[in-house]
Amino acid sequence: MLILNEVSKTFNPGTVNAKLALDNLSLHIHPGDFVSIIGANGAGKSTLFNAICGSFFPDQGKVIMDGKDITWMPEHKRARVIGRLFQDPMRGTAPDMSIEENLALAAGNGGWLSRVSSADRREFQDRLALLEMGLEDRMYQPVGLLSGGQRQALTLLMATYHVPKVLLLDEHTAALDPGTAKKVLALTRSIVEENHITCLMITHNMQSALDLGNRTLMMDQGHVIYDVTGEERKSLTIQDLTAKFRQASGKALDNDRMLLGIEK
């Protein structure tokens, strides 16, 4: 499905600020996988996503999607098959435009000079209704007026409007209040399960890392230091994860943003 083959990326090479963000990283994601990714700040989690999306090109290695080498494909072309949500709910939508206009761009129906048809409009309303946030009655309001949770739910809807081959979730609930985060997470789960989307999710919440999905990756210094799935994963606890981290990286998981499931 999605294969990363010995991908490396150094930022600011040749300077004192040089940082090896991805170190010869190889990864094989299977169709239908829901992978949760944890790791301290600067471990390379978002950089991994950037490499998959094409926000930058790797120094070496290959990114292969469905057998096709997409290493050098520009970002906007990959976006057809890759959906992505960021932590910042503002990043996925255009604030000055209405909900309908945002959805129209995500849907991308018709030619360049086509306009939103009444059939499109009905479809948008039906899909918005699934979010159960009343957004279907606010189609003509600018997205900038929505709350963070509403914007993130809308972004989720837009990113999955055409079912992507891979959905990348970069701590997409971290900036929301606990109640909203829970709701957006539940929405994510139902959309992903319903459409059988292959999904990678970065999270700082160790409990949701274990609760959601079928596979968990732990990253440190541009490596995957622990990759767990199946029966072994089912019996894992948060304590096991922190112990694994200490064992694999030789240091404690001392990240003040790492939530030890207290939220739940």
Partner: peptide, 13 residues
């Protein structure tokens, strides 16, 4: 949308 949020335009392919 390009003037409002270029990232979003890119993610709309």
């Amino acid at each position: 949308a390009t003037g409002s949020n270029a990232d979003m335009v890119r993610s709309s392919s």
